[in-house]
Each structure stands twice: as C-alpha cells, then as structure tokens.
Amino acid sequence: MKRDLDSKPEHQKYRTLSHTADLGLRIWGATLEDLYANAGEALTATITDRRGLRLKESKEITVEAPDREALLVAWLNHLLYLYDIDGFLGREFKVRELSPERLTATARGDIFDPDRHVGKTAVKAATYHQLEITRTKDGWQATVILDL
C-alpha cells in the first residue's frame, strides 16, 4: 500500500488506498461520530454509486466491540450484513450514541436493485489488518483494509 503523500483536501470524507488484492480506506472526521458515519459512506461508495440511492429506508443499528478500532470493523461488517440479508445500502449515517465499546446509529438509504443501481465492487469484509484510528490536528483519521 502506498502511503498518501498529500494531506487531506478540505471537506474530503474518505479516499481509497491501493492494495494489490484488496482495498484500503482512509477516512477522516471532525469528530469520532463523523468518522464512523463517513466510514459508512465510504463502504457504500465502494459497493455502488451512492448518488443512485434514495433515502427511503431507515435502519437503527447498534454494534459493540472491545475498543474503538474493533468497533469500526464491527460497524462496517454489520453494514455488510444488512446488505447481504436484504440489499440495504445506507446513503446517510447519523451516529447518535458513541463510546469506545458501543455505537448506535441511524442509516438511511435504499434497497440495492441491479436494474437501477450500479454494482461496483463486492466487499467480503472489513479486516483488522493495519487497522488504525488516530487523532489529527483537526479531528480523526482511520485506516481500514477491506477484503474483496
């Protein structure tokens, strides 16, 4: 994986990092709540073109994990679970409650329909490999590698 040389452009929520077989995500957020919400958006954007999703379904999600890094993986993998069971993909995420071990959020989005939506890349899972959440001078940054 290449380290990103440039600093984050303003207002950017995430970018992808190149990894030979898989895909890395670098995610930013002004707050930890934003960081998790933006990670949700980044995951959806990997699977489909987010702009094609309508805000017609809403899901209440709670996940738990031993620490905030593991919580990021648990959050993303729960979103993959929702996608697998009935095709739900979130377009907007609102993290309502957050501790290092527990996250409660609302996801609003659409049911994936191959006739209306673009299928981009299938994601098997978010992994713990090189998983990282760090403080930056203007908020938080996370790195997570997806198994494709």
Binding site: H19, D22, H129, I145, D147
Partner: peptide, 9 residues
C-alpha cells in the same frame, strides 16, 4: 504469494 491480511495469500 501476495499480501493478504494476517497470513499472506
């Protein structure tokens, strides 16, 4: 062999 996560592929 290539880069996996944990174990190499």
């Amino acid at each position: 062999i290539h880069w996996g996560y944990g174990f190499p592929i």
